[in-house]
Each structure stands twice: as structure tokens, then as C-alpha cells.
Design a protein around this nucleic acid. Structure first.
Length: 408
DNA sequence: CATGGGGTAATTTACATCGG
DNA sequence: CCGATGTAAATTACCCCATG
């Protein structure tokens, strides 16, 4: 990471804009524990788990708002680069779309199953040979399934999302994703352990994600004796390219060389804030420089191509504004969230996969209307020279590659 | 205070059963 | 046959605690 241009910590933990003050996430977690999760055996733990889900939801709806909805798959199996014996489920992966189609689906009161969609599709000259249907539902009891897979083939998945609606029809996006992703994201949240002054032990678990980030992509990290992070990528003829990591990564993203792109996966980590991620300096001040990162934060920053920080302020604002004290317009969000965690409740309808359909609409609108502010909830830890907009641009670049040629 | 071990809750998937 | 519902198994993500 580059230390020449350290960002002031204020930028990292407390973005300047809105001047409203928000409670710290630690306090909100305690509040959640007391109010929402009192009935569980370990309220704080359950609250922490729920906060983890919220980090995922925020990240997912940011991606949606960036126009990547149809590129996303959730919790799909990803083989290690060059080592197919080991695979991992990754939270979000972004995939090339090989073909897509808009289907007018007659509105119905009933649930919308993969089967019904496929049946409607067969009348529409959309070739389904070689595909095996799933038994998932796009819409069930008013709950939307994000990244809903309706059929699978050997190398692709066929997914479905709701594009828009008319009086009689739902316009459904049918799109075929190539299984090999060009990017992946993992979200992690770690809370402060009660009574602990130092960093969290639980972060050991985050190393699992760091491991995946290091083995997923053909672009691998390697350090030289001077401590510089180098990137190495093998081409199909066995030759390799070795040069400074960020430089090589940019080169691959900018290139149209199938040889470089075919197995490349941009890895992105999203960690929510933690009071002890960063050490104090000799004066007892918090300043943002790499040597003051706790070991665990460095491990993550060195493992992912991109490491993002979801700030305390951002997560608090999301919880406070939409879940704790929603406006009239947003009160369904609160209701959906609370009912999802009510005692005896079986089905959660506030997760990255299952989301109440009205809540989905409200979240999309909120993210669209407040995109700039929400982007301010994230800070880039690595590469330290880049911004979130750079990441968006890189994802967009990858999305627009001519993948059909690359994989033919 | 770093580390390893441990436990619960949440979520998803696969499979079974029920009812039309 | 088909979809809805229920249940067990598998996986993951949290937090807590004992030890040295």
C-alpha cells in the first residue's frame, strides 16, 4: 500500500457529510440485543449476526444501484485457480452475460416459480436445450428472491429478475450467466468483544475470506525482498508476466486479451468498522497509516485486490434512518426487518437472497436517490491510491468486455 | 493479549410429505 | 403432476472463554 498520501482518519471513520450525529454501531448493537434479540439465548451474538446481514444488504443494493443486478450471483461455488479440487462458496460474484431476453409474464396472484417462468419461455423461441430447471421461486409470499436461478447448464446459469411492470404484465429479465465470474465480493462484520480494549479475536474467521481472495484469481500476489507487492499471471502458453501488483491489475482490466482475462477474478472485500482496527500512535492519536493497522486489517488489505471499509457512520445511518426511525414512506422496511427477527418467526425476508418485494423497491429508490451519500459510507483501504469510483469504473469495464469471444 | 477451542443462531439446500 | 410446506443437513457468521 502507498503511504505517501495517508488519508486523515476522519475521512475513514467519520465522513464529513451529514452533520447529524449517529450512534456508534457498538451502541446500536447493544440496542438491537436489548430490543430485538432479547428472546435469544445470546442477544449480542444474534444482534451481531443481524448486523452482518445488513452489511451484505447494503453492499448488494449498492451493486444493484450501480446497474450490476443481472451480473450478480449469490453464494455460488468457485473453484480455486488451477486447483479444481478445492472450491469455495462466495457471497457475491459478478458474471458475464451470454444472452438475455425480456419476457412478458402475465400478472398473477400466485407465487412465481422457476417452472412457470420456463413454461412461459418455451412459447417464446428461447432455446432451453441442455438446461436443467431448478425449483426456486422468483416471488413467493411477497418475498423476492434476488439472483434467482431458474435453470442450469454445465457452464452457465439461467437467472431471472423483475425489470418493470405494466398493467397486465411483469417484464422479466431472463439472462444467462457464464459460471466463471470476473469479480467476487465478500462482506465481513466483526464487533467489539465486551470488555476488550484490543482488536477482535473473531477476525480469525475473516482470514478464511482472505484465503479465498488469494486463491481465486489467475492474478496472484507475490512479495519481493524489498517488501513490494508484485503481481504474477500465467498465460496459456506457460509464459508469465511479473510486475508491480496494482500496475498489472490495471493492465489486465484495460486489456482485451482473453489470455489475461479468462481466469482473472477481481476480488473485493467489504469490512464493517471496528473501533480497534487501527492502533493509536505514540501520541495516543488515531491516524491513518498502514503501519498503524492492526495485523488483521493488514491481512485483509493484502489479500483482496480491493478492500473497502463500511464506516460506522454509514451502517448507523442505514439502521437509524431506515430501520429504527423510518419516515412514513419507509416504515415497511422497519416492519419487515423486525418481523424477520421476531420470536418464532420462520422466514427472514430481509436478507441478500430473500427480500420483501416492497422493501426491495424502497431500498432501490433510497439507494438511487442517495447514491452519492451512500458511496460516502465506504472508504477504500486498498489500493490506497484509488477511490470507490475507480472500483465502479473497473467493474463496469469488466462487465463490458466481449466475454463471448473470450470464452469461445 | 494472542491463540485456539467452542457454542448458538441464521441461512440455504436437499429431500420428503401433503394436498389439489 | 405440480406447487406448497416441513424438516434435516450443511455451511457460515457471529461472539465468548480458557490457556499460557
Amino acid at each position: 500500500m502507498d503511504e505517501k498520501d495517508p488519508k486523515p482518519l476522519e475521512e475513514i471513520v467519520q465522513p464529513a457529510q451529514p452533520t447529524i450525529s449517529y450512534q456508534s454501531v457498538d451502541k446500536l448493537q447493544r440496542l438491537l440485543a436489548d430490543e430485538v434479540f432479547k428472546h435469544t439465548k445470546d442477544p449480542k451474538k444474534a444482534a451481531g449476526r443481524a448486523l452482518g446481514t445488513l452489511v451484505e444488504v447494503i453492499t448488494y443494493y449498492l451493486l444493484k444501484t450501480w446497474g450490476l443486478n443481472n451480473q450478480i450471483s449469490i453464494e455460488q461455488r468457485l473453484e480455486e485457480y488451477g486447483n479444481t479440487l478445492i472450491s469455495h462458496n462466495v457471497e457475491y460474484s459478478l458474471h458475464p452475460i451470454i444472452r438475455s431476453y425480456v419476457l412478458n409474464f402475465p400478472k398473477t396472484e400466485k407465487n412465481i416459480t422457476a417452472n412457470m417462468i420456463l413454461k412461459t419461455l418455451t412459447g417464446e423461441s428461447f432455446d432451453l436445450t441442455g438446461m436443467k430447471k431448478t425449483n426456486l421461486s422468483l416471488l413467493s409470499n411477497n418475498i423476492l428472491r434476488n439472483a434467482c436461478i431458474i435453470a442450469k447448464s454445465e457452464d452457465t446459469n439461467l437467472l431471472c429478475s423483475i425489470e418493470s411492470e405494466t398493467e397486465e404484465f411483469l417484464r422479466l429479465h431472463i439472462y444467462e450467466q457464464y459460471k466463471k465470474p470476473y469479480a467476487m465480493l465478500e462482506c465481513k462484520r466483526v464487533g467489539v468483544e465486551e470488555g476488550m480494549s484490543k482488536g477482535p479475536q473473531t477476525i480469525e474467521k475473516a482470514k478464511q475470506g482472505a484465503y479465498v481472495a488469494r486463491v481465486a484469481s489467475s492474478l496472484q500476489k507475490i512479495r519481493n525482498g524489498a517488501g513490494d507487492m508484485q503481481g504474477i499471471i500465467y498465460k496459456s502458453d506457460g509464459e508469465f508476466i511479473l510486475k508491480p501488483f496494482v500496475e498489472l491489475m490495471e493492465e489486465i482490466i484495460n486489456s482485451d486479451d482473453g489470455d489475461l482475462l479468462r481466469q482473472f477474478i477481481l476480488t473485493v472485500g467489504v469490512v464493517s468498522n471496528h473501533g480497534n482496527w487501527i492502533k493509536r500512535d505514540a501520541d495516543g492519536d488515531l491516524s491513518f497509516s498502514e503501519e498503524l493497522f492492526q495485523k488483521e486489517l493488514m491481512v485483509l488489505a493484502n489479500s483482496y485486490d480491493w478492500l473497502l471499509f463500511l464506516t460506522d457512520q454509514g451502517l448507523s445511518q442505514f439502521i437509524d434512518e431506515l430501520l429504527f426511525k423510518p419516515t412514513e414512506e419507509h416504515k415497511i422496511l422497519r416492519e419487515t426487518f423486525l418481523s424477520s427477527y421476531a420470536e418464532g418467526k420462520k422466514k427472514n425476508e430481509f436478507t441478500k437472497v430473500q427480500m420483501n418485494i416492497q422493501a426491495d423497491g424502497l431500498l432501490l429508490k433510497y439507494f438511487r436517490d442517495n447514491l452519492q451519500m451512500i458511496e460516502g459510507w465506504f472508504n477504500v483501504i486498498s489500493p490506497s491510491t484509488k477511490t470507490l469510483t475507480n472500483l465502479q469504473r473497473e467493474l463496469e469495464q469488466l462487465k463490458n468486455k466481449n466475454w463471448i469471444d473470450i470464452y469461445e
